[in-house]
């Protein structure tokens, strides 16, 4: 088991990054730091996918020198998934940032707990 961990060190790193991102998104008080956590978490998944899709010694899936055999190239699907995932995470990040801007303009702070306190005081 331990030896597998060493061979697949890319995947292990991706999972550690995922945990870092996840806990940042969950535990940070500052909204911008939360969004950074979100991006670390998503990138970790893409790293994992890219690591899984790569086969040592093979080429990127673009036909070169007329070689048609599938043995010569790596699997293109993980790359496609990563691209789709990036589109999703970009749009989600943009939405989160726009919400953060609105909250900051209203309450002059990025701390979510402080915003909740101010809301309670307003009593609306």
């Amino acid at each position: 088991m331990g030896s597998n961990l060493f061979v697949n060190y890319g995947e292990a790193v991706a999972m550690i990054l995922f945990a870092i991102g996840f806990s940042n998104l969950l535990l940070q008080k500052n909204l911008i730091k939360k969004i950074i956590g979100l991006n670390i978490m998503d990138s970790a998944v893409y790293l994992f996918l890219a690591e899984k899709g790569y086969i040592t010694g093979r080429l990127a899936p673009i036909v070169t020198n007329g070689v048609q055999s599938s043995e010569a190239y790596i699997n293109p699907i993980p790359a496609g998934l990563v691209l789709t995932g990036i589109v999703v995470s970009v749009s989600v990040t943009a939405l989160m940032l726009s919400l953060t801007i609105r909250l900051y303009r209203r309450y002059q702070t990025l701390d979510l707990d402080e915003i909740s306190m101010k809301l309670k005081k307003e009593g609306q």
Binding site: L25, L26, L38, V92, T100, L103, L112, L119, Q124
Partner: peptide, 19 residues
């Protein structure tokens, strides 16, 4: 204010879930 704060909280938990 309340709905924007609720939307942020909703997004954070939802993003944890979708991650």
């Amino acid at each position: 204010g309340r709905t924007i704060e609720a939307a942020v909280r909703y997004m954070i938990l939802s993003l944890l879930g979708s991650g």
